[in-house]
Amino acid sequence: MVAAECDAQTADCCVVIRPNCSLSWQRTVAVYCGICVVSLTIALGFALLGFWLILPFAGLELIALAAAFYHCAVRTNSREVISIQGGTVAVMRGLHQPKESTQIQRAWASVELAEPRQRGYPARLLICSHGRKIEVGHCLNDTERRQLAVDLRRWIRLPSAPVQAA
């Protein structure tokens, strides 16, 4: 999903790209706790009767489930931010704060949509400058990616706002 905010006066843009996520973090925690209650009740019940070897398996399984939910939540809550400000285009990636960042000059930046070699495969959206290619929008579907390519070309080409004297 793409959310963009552009300032018509300064020609600056901020584009936020995030994957689709159909379960919020709060609901993920609630679902996980619900599963834990049932599994641990069963395992503790048997443990109290003396059959304690069920408990470690239940524990291991719940740890694996937690890891799976966490991994998925991290992936679906990650963000890609393309910041077009003044003469630079910055691409940042991260979860709650940028973990990776790349800056290129706006004047030299171009947007490429690499078509797939085979029909049915997704195209790849690349921001290029001086031989470097930064892929963005990997989590988008093709329709969104193609629309973003059109929009990015338009936003990057916009003339920079004149620098005001201090």
Binding site: V91, K99, E100, T102, P116, R117, L126, R132
Partner: peptide, 14 residues
């Protein structure tokens, strides 16, 4: 902050 890796173009097919 680290620098984002540049990606080669490939299609991730089978």
């Amino acid at each position: 902050m680290s620098t984002a890796a540049a990606h080669d173009a490939h299609d991730h097919g089978p």
